[in-house]
């Protein structure tokens, strides 16, 4: 749903800004998409001479299209893989990373669940199917219902890397299409465990600590919280001209305020 809405918004902003001068193309992660959109809109308001077109498609798509020269900025919710960097260099592209925001992946349970904390190891075992009952981690005798994101989402990829050491999620995990869907499912399922982006934490689900550390702005920024990750924008070489101005804008106080509006943690 969010995706459809955002596509509509993109099309609208594109047609509205139609005939402006220079054009900057951003493609990639749907996790970074809201940051890119909010900042792009504001940037275009201030600078009517430049058009920014923002597209989703996923981190992999963004990086591939940067390497193809099909976009100017690749949004990515992960750092580039070695194979992608090699591919870029072989095409004469020099990807340069800019951290634009921080995100934390919060682990949430149903409010009735007495469990307060899980270790990284316990979370991995729950998600890979080695722990199946809450009593194995100090909870009630109840089957664990594992909620995950679709395997192609950036949040899934980040969680798989940070929490699961790239092991596969158990087959009976319920895969949901959005953060909101995970939150709703956790809220209505007593035995549930799920993970959602920092911006999607609500009072209707129970946020637990991981290795004793709460998921908060402070712990995400200090990277103390184990499931925190930077969000990137990649450019070809050092940014110049409008691209540099845009990146500087995101990193400015105003841009970082928009990052927080989008549900992520600002860098300052």
């Amino acid at each position: 749903m969010k995706k459809i809405l955002s596509t509509v918004l993109i099309v609208m902003t594109m047609t509205l800004a139609g005939f402006a001068g220079e054009k900057i193309r951003l493609t990639g992660s749907t996790t970074v998409l809201p940051v890119a959109q909010l900042t792009a809109e504001e940037f275009m308001n201030v600078n009517p001479d430049v058009t920014l077109s923002v597209q989703g498609g996923g981190s992999g798509v963004g990086i591939a299209s940067l390497n193809d020269g099909a976009c100017d900025i690749a949004n990515a919710s992960r750092s580039m893989k070695d194979s992608e960097i090699k591919n870029a260099i072989s095409r004469g592209i020099h990807p340069t990373a800019h951290v634009v925001a921080m995100d934390g992946i919060a682990v949430v349970l149903h409010p009735s669940n007495p469990v307060q904390n899980l270790t990284k190891d316990q979370i991995r075992k729950i998600y890979t199917g080695k722990i199946t009952n809450w009593k194995q981690v100090g909870g009630a005798d109840k089957k664990i219902v594992v909620l995950s994101r679709d395997t192609s989402s950036g949040t899934y990829e980040a969680f798989a890397k940070l929490a699961l050491n790239d092991e596969k999620v158990r087959k009976d995990a319920l895969l949901n299409a959005s953060n909101k869907a995970v939150e709703t499912a956790v809220e209505t399922t007593p035995g549930a465990i799920g993970y959602i982006g920092f911006g999607y934490i609500t009072k209707r689900v129970k946020l637990i600590t991981v290795d004793g550390i709460t998921c908060s702005k402070v712990t995400i920024l200090s990277k103390e919280y184990p499931f925190s990750r930077p969000l990137f924008m990649y450019t070809n070489g050092k940014p110049k001209g409008w691209i540099k101005k845009y990146i500087d804008f995101i990193l400015s106080k105003e841009g970082q305020a928009l990052v927080e509006t989008a549900g992520y943690v600002g860098l300052k």
Partner: peptide
Amino acid sequence: GAAMIPQSVFDPVRPMTSTIAAEMGEA
């Protein structure tokens, strides 16, 4: 949405249509 072979009617499943819908945008 769980891609498992169903054993009972109360198992979660991931039909073909929803797989395409959920994953096409990011592939």
